[in-house]
């Protein structure tokens, strides 16, 4: 079979020899094979030629072997170029992304210090929109600090550490809160027609976490419930007030202000409570369920939080109703 196909191809190629593409390598090989006395060699060569010929039967007729080579070469080069271009554009886009983010990290240490201090000082100025720095270095570092503090708190608390879960949970909680609440508040601010951008929201909420960091760092080391409540009200309250004041100054209309600020204040203060009381208990509860199927800590947490949040929601609703 192969022999026949080879002969056919050989004949076809021999016919080509009289054409323009006579100097092709394959044809020279064929000529050599015919001169050689050994039949096996000839057969192999003819088979190779046959396969090559069968592959490009139509192209060979029109373009000839050289044309095929050129086309192949062009195709390979084209492919190489495409791959190279894709890689280059990927690398470029990575650097471009870094460049896009760079303005948000353009700060001085003094500025960061000043902003950290400012985040604890509520400014009572609601007639004129207050300035918010669109900057992400401080918030990002505060979130990482909060992660470290949470890990530290879990170590000092009674929880025996299985960090495999704890570290992931800590990172997830902090980033989830920061990004999730920021985007939620941004959505709400969009609905309430507040003048704030996403980056400003991220920055505002991120610097608001400074109060959380201080409170948690102190109260994880000194275990007094009364001390925590004082800190919760004073430090957490101050940073919340600051955010509320900024949001109030940037919103028009009483109802909108109440909705926006009530939600933000409730979420922010409750998150601190949650981190202090429930967080490691929740993790402990999860870990307990791994070993034995007793759920009490889990249920307790699930029951407590909605009560508080319901209370806050109720008061918010009442306040809104009063203003209306």
């Amino acid at each position: 079979m192969g022999r026949l196909r080879g002969q056919h191809a050989g004949w076809r190629l021999r016919r080509h020899r009289h054409g323009e593409h006579g100097r092709h390598v394959g044809l020279q090989l064929r000529g050599h094979g015919r001169d050689a006395p050994a039949h096996e060699e000839e057969e192999e060569e003819e088979e190779a030629e046959g396969e090559a010929g069968a592959g490009e039967e139509e192209d060979g007729e029109f373009l000839g072997m050289k044309g095929l080579r050129g086309q192949l070469g062009r195709q390979v080069a084209d492919q190489m170029w495409q791959v190279g271009k894709r890689q280059a554009s990927r690398a470029f886009s990575l650097y471009a992304n870094i460049d896009i983010l760079r303005p948000y990290f353009d700060v001085e240490p003094v500025q960061v210090r000043a902003r950290l201090l400012e985040s604890m000082i509520p400014v009572k100025m609601i007639n004129f929109p207050q300035k918010i720095a669109g900057e992400l270095y401080g918030p990002l570092m505060l979130v990482f600090t909060l992660v470290a503090i949470l890990l530290h708190g879990m170590k000092t608390s009674d929880t025996i550490i299985r960090e495999g879960t704890l570290m992931g949970t800590a990172i997830g909680t902090c980033f989830g809160y920061w990004l999730g609440v920021s985007s939620f508040m941004y959505f709400l601010a969009y609905l309430c027609n507040a003048q704030i951008t996403m980056v400003q929201m991220l920055s505002l909420l991120g610097y608001g976490l400074f109060g959380h960091c201080i409170t948690l760092f102190v109260t994880y080391n000194i275990h007094f419930h009364s001390l925590f409540y004082i800190f919760w009200l004073v430090v957490g309250g101050l940073s919340t007030l600051r955010m509320v004041a900024v949001l109030v100054s940037r919103t028009v209309g009483h109802t909108q202000r109440l909705i926006l600020c009530g939600t933000l204040a409730a979420l922010h203060m409750l998150f601190l409570l949650y981190l202090h009381f429930a967080y490691h208990k929740v993790v402990e509860g999860i870990l307990d369920t791994w070993e034995a199927a007793n759920m009490p800590p889990f249920q307790r947490v699930a029951r407590d939080i909605p009560v508080v949040s319901n209370a806050v929601l109720n008061t918010t609703a009442k306040a809104i109703a009063l203003t209306l």
């Binding site: 240490p109 570092m141 470290a148 170590k155």
Partner: peptide, 18 residues
């Protein structure tokens, strides 16, 4: 800006040493 760069490094090694 050295202080801004040093802070995360400090945090990183602090967590490891803890």
């Amino acid at each position: 800006r050295k202080a801004l760069v040093v802070y995360p490094i400090f945090l990183f090694y602090f967590v490891i040493s803890w």
